[in-house]
Amino acid sequence: MIQADAPTILPLELKDVSLQAGQHRLIKDVSCTLDAKDVTIIIGPNGAGKSLLLRLCHGLLTPSAGAIHWHGANGRDPSLYQAMVFQRPVMLRRSVRANIDFALSLRKVPRRLRHNLIEEALHRAGLNRFAKTPARVLSFGEQQRLALARSWALRPQILFLDEPTASIDPAATHVIEEVIMAMRKEGTKIVMCTHDLGQARRLADEVIFLHRGRILEKSGAAEFFAGPKNDLAQAFLRGELLWWHRRELTPP
């Protein structure tokens, strides 16, 4: 059972992290530090390596080279303090309530404490009335809210989100963003990748711009959206469809 007041495992430091699959280096010498607070948004085009970077941080993938270090862990297992929401929600073939209960039981939360955690998480995601419904009959948007509620119940210190609103309508996106911000307010570090620049503007405190497996820019959100230093990031922000054709760019 994770104590809510346990010291944070952050900051997270990546040192020259690379990921190789066959001949291709998909993540190239990435070094960066993620602090304990705030929302870090990773943006970049398809194939930039956003999802891979999240999975490396979360420990689902092992880097081919480099090191990932949780500075605050001090010998504790960092995986117990993390959660992740995937692009496609993965729901067990059980009720909504049982899906959250299963996650809590994996984290060894005592049975007597689970009920309240589940109720609260369902309430936050607006899913109370579905508690006994089989999770897989929910709509895609509702399932994604449930995935977020499941993560909420775990009280993670850091939450990774892999384009959680990629195929979800604006109303459901709004609910999901609200829950994310509520978690941030309670002290959970949010690391999320998205294609949606509007969403990045709404949520980000910090932006990482990823391109072909490299971090080209990492800066505060206000600074980044006011005008990124990197020329490819500038073109990406302007929404140029062939923005990677550097030579053809018009001067900003």
Partner: peptide, 24 residues
Amino acid sequence: LEYEEQLRSLGTTPLRALGALLWD
């Protein structure tokens, strides 16, 4: 194939994963 990442993310043990697969 469908469950692996999610269950690993939640911190499953191999035995719990086996049980969940058989039940689901």
